[in-house]
Structures are given as structure tokens and as C-alpha cells.
Write a protein that binds this DNA or RNA. Structure first.
Lengths: 253, 253
DNA sequence: CCAAAAGTGTTGAAGTTACACCCATGC
DNA sequence: GCATGGGTGTAACTTCAACACTTTTGG
């Protein structure tokens, strides 16, 4: 973060503008989200300690750059896929007592009215190990389905991001940013089920995804698995990008 | 506007937060948008004089309320359908010279960094006649397709709103907020064509829209038209709302 | 030999597209 | 009687949903 401070040393954090990131990852089983633990007193219940990573915005930064900076501070990843979820600005969104307490410890004007612009991002979970940063005692992956409560209005933001993700998967290919370079159709299948939050017929899924013509069969098999080994695939980046731009009608069942 | 000033007299307009409204209307022929004319010197070209209605946000207002207030000041309409388009916050979005000139005449801190949260709304064009307001010398309807340039980043916002509207029409019923209570299938057909910006087969359109089960045939005909008079329909509000919530897959051709 | 996930086709139903003519009215 | 938009059905094609068994491997 030091280099960023230097880069912005002549500019102020705007006390009214923040960004929050909903960072999704996939562990081949379920959808996960990267949250920071505010580490406030043990009297707070567990869920309430968790928050989306986010921070105030510098006056010379555009919104996506700010989200990208937050994400980079936390994960050291760059060039991450980001999609705007929207702006959240209820006047009382930060006025809960436990939230105010925390803000007092990290912000110059903790009581200022703040609207936040949320982004969601998709990352490969094993590209890095979460670690603490300037604004987080600790950061970790949590199963999305286990999250029932978050700080501020972050739970609402998470739900909005999930809604966007579900919309996206119906009209554009998805997986490039979440899966490793090589993956099996079974893994891609599980990813789609995790995002859509319902089970999909295996044969129909395979037929449909293969028809999109975005996958290349690597003629390489899993080894060491206690069942019939699966073929590995990778995305055909050209076709994937083309299809991302044009979109399609209604993937899903 | 006076009552609003009073209501907010103890609170400040936040110099960093604004809202802009993309207000769509339908005249049975094409899609229109309500724009304000900034009325700056004749040396500016025509398009550059036009802007989306918008204003700074009070610190006690939530975002949708602020958009609703702007819309109400301009049109005196209440309870208008609003959908968030997103946040727009490039640091240089208001720094064009002609834009700065205008801001100096209406804002206390014209150079402050402002992010705007845009909403689009759908209104029945004949529910009111546009008129001037505190922040607009004049307001008028313009054909969306004629707009090639707007103040600030408003053209970009308009395009984003159009994109959202096109997405929406594919998965939810649309027309309730744009058409008068009674309308013909031909008018609804034209509305869909105007929004999707392409022509749709008449028979297929009728079959598909009727199958949605959101229309009630009023058993009443047009009079005075120089062709076979059309049946009037109205929306079945219960079914319309139900379908708005559940959505459907891919209307359109 | 058992457990586990991979891989593979068919059928009936539903939905989509394309297309052309007659009708009721005002002028 | 002519111009204008209203109103209607069908056939070919494509897509979708549902469904069960064999294969390959590790242990």
C-alpha cells in the first residue's frame, strides 16, 4: 500500500465515496467469497465481524480503479475481472453502533455520509493465499451459502452481486476467471450448479456447453483419481471473448 | 421546490454526490427522453446544450429518493418507476470547459469531484407537459435516436440506460409505465419495436404477448380511425406484477 | 469387487421462424 | 374504390427436458 500512498500523496480520500468488492472464488465444490474480519471485540457475534473489503476513494481515481486498488491491496492480484453491481447509499447504511465503532478506528470522518459503489469480481482461488492488509486484521474465504449477516449493508450488496452473477451466466460464458487453465467438464458443471444454485442435468449440460464452441479438449486425462479419469479442457480464448461480447439467449435449465 | 428546501433546510447538498435521471416516454411512434436545455450561449452547438435532469443529493436522502425528487421537481409526477442504471464517476466527467462554465452558475463548489448515480424511469408522456424548473431553463422531449451528444458524460449514461432497458424487456413485461390505461396491440407492438430497435413479426408478437396472460381485452374498439378499428386492451395488473417478479426467459426474436 | 465419477443417445413436447391474405373503416 | 393498419393459421425446423446404463480407475 505504500506505493499507492505515495502516488496519491497530493490527493485526499474523499470522505463521501467508497467502494466495496464482492470477490467470488470457486473451490470445485461451492461458491466462496473473500471477506475481512474486523476483529472487533469478542462480544460481537461472529457474522457481524465480517465485511466486504472496501475503502474510500481518492479524488483522482475513477471508480473501477479504486475497486481494483482495494482488490490489489488485499490479494496482490492485478487485471482482475470487475463488474459494477451498483451504488448503495442509504443515509443510515453505516450508522449501526458496532459499525460506527469500527469506522472511528479507521476513518478520519467516521460519521460522514458515504455512498459506496460495489463491484463484484471473479478470481481463481489458488492464485494467492489471503493475507492481512492495511484495512483488515485478516481476510479469508467463506462459503457464500454460509453467510447470513455482514457489516453495514454488505449482506444486501452480496445478494445484489449474486443476482447479477446469475443474470450474467444466462447470457454470457463464464468460468474463465474462476477456473484454472485446465479443468474438467465435471468441474465446469459444478461451477454452473454452484452459481445457479440448482442441479443441472449432466447430459444436457455437456451438450449445451460444448455447442457454445468455447472449449478445447486437451487430450489429457486426470491421473490418480479413484474413478474413471476425466478429460481436461481449456477455454478457447478467442471464441470465449467473442461470445462474451455477443452473448446468447438463456443458458440454463 | 420550496417545500423541499424547507424540509431539508438543516441539511446540506453534498457536493460530491449527484443523481441523474434518464426519463423515457413513448409517443406511439418512437422512444423519447426528457432533457433539459441549459440555455448557455448560442455559441455552443445545440446538442451540447442538452443534459439529463439531475442534481446534488441531500445528506439525509437515499439515492432513489433523490432521483424521485429531481423527477418530481421537473414533472410533478410522483410514484414513478425507477431503476438504477449505475454509478458514474470518472474524475474528469465534469471538467469539460462548457460544462464547468455551467456548473459555476448553479453550484457552490463547481470543481468538486462528483460521482453521479443514474436512474432510468418510464413515464406516460401525456401525464404532464414538460415545464421549466429551478435547474432548467426548459425541459422537453427528444427522440432518443436523434441524440448524438449530451453534456458531461450523459450520453454514456443514456446508452447504459438503453442497454438496461433492452435487457429488461427480454425477461420482464414492459409497457405498464409507458402506455395509457387503454391501448391497442399495435401500439404495444410498436413500443417493443422502439425499445428493441428492430422490427418484430406481427403474428408472432401477438401470439407471444398474449400467451403471457397479462392483457385483458376490453371489448371496445377504436373509433374514427381510417382503417379497421382495433380492440383496446389493458394490463391485468395482478398478473403483470406477478410476472415482473418471476420474470421469463427471452422475449424477443 | 466395490465405490466413485465419466461418458454417452433418444424420444416426445414445446417453442421458434417465416410467411400471405382478407377485413373494417374514413375519405 | 383506395389507402391504412387490424387480424388470423400453419408447416418446417430447432430446442428442450427427461431419462439409465456402461466405463475406467484406485483402493
Amino acid at each position: 500500500m505504500d506505493n499507492i500512498k505515495v502516488k496519491n500523496s497530493n490527493l485526499e480520500l474523499n470522505p463521501n465515496l467508497s467502494t466495496d468488492c464482492v470477490i467470488f472464488g470457486f473451490d470445485f465444490e461451492k461458491l466462496n467469497i473473500l471477506l475481512i474480519d474486523r476483529g472487533i471485540g469478542a462480544e460481537s457475534n461472529d457474522s457481524n465481524r465480517l465485511a466486504l473489503p472496501g475503502n474510500l476513494i481518492y479524488d483522482n481515481e475513477n471508480l473501477e480503479m479504486a475497486a481494483s486498488r482495494v482488490l490489489n491491496e488485499l490479494t496482490e492480484l492485478k487485471d482482475i475481472y470487475l463488474e459494477q453491481v451498483g451504488a448503495f447509499g442509504d443515509p443510515d447504511r453505516i450508522s449501526k453502533e458496532s459499525d460506527q465503532e469500527w469506522l472511528k478506528s479507521i476513518r478520519a470522518k467516521p460519521e460522514a455520509r458515504v455512498i459506496t459503489v460495489a463491484y463484484y469480481s471473479l478470481v481463481k482461488m489458488d492464485d494467492y493465499a489471503p493475507h492481512a492488509s492495511s484495512f483488515a486484521k485478516s481476510a479469508d474465504w467463506y462459503a457464500v451459502n454460509d453467510i447470513k449477516l455482514l457489516a453495514f449493508d454488505h449482506y444486501e450488496i452480496l445478494q445484489a452481486a449474486l443476482r447479477k452473477l446469475k443474470e450474467k451466466i444466462r447470457i454470457q460464458p463464464l468460468g474463465f476467471n474462476l477456473l484454472p487453465e485446465k479443468f474438467t467438464l465435471g468441474q465446469l458443471h459444478k461451477l454452473y450448479e454452484a452459481i445457479l444454485d440448482k442441479s443441472l442435468d449432466k447430459r444436457n449440460f455437456r451438450r449445451k456447453i460444448l455447442k457454445l464452441d468455447i472449449l478445447t479438449n486437451l487430450d489429457e486425462k486426470q491421473v490418480g483419481v479413484p474413478h474413471k479419469p476425466s478429460q481436461f479442457f481449456m477455454f478457447n480464448e478467442v471464441n470465449y471473448k467473442k461470445l462474451s461480447e455477443t452473448g446468447f439467449d438463456n443458458f440454463g435449465f
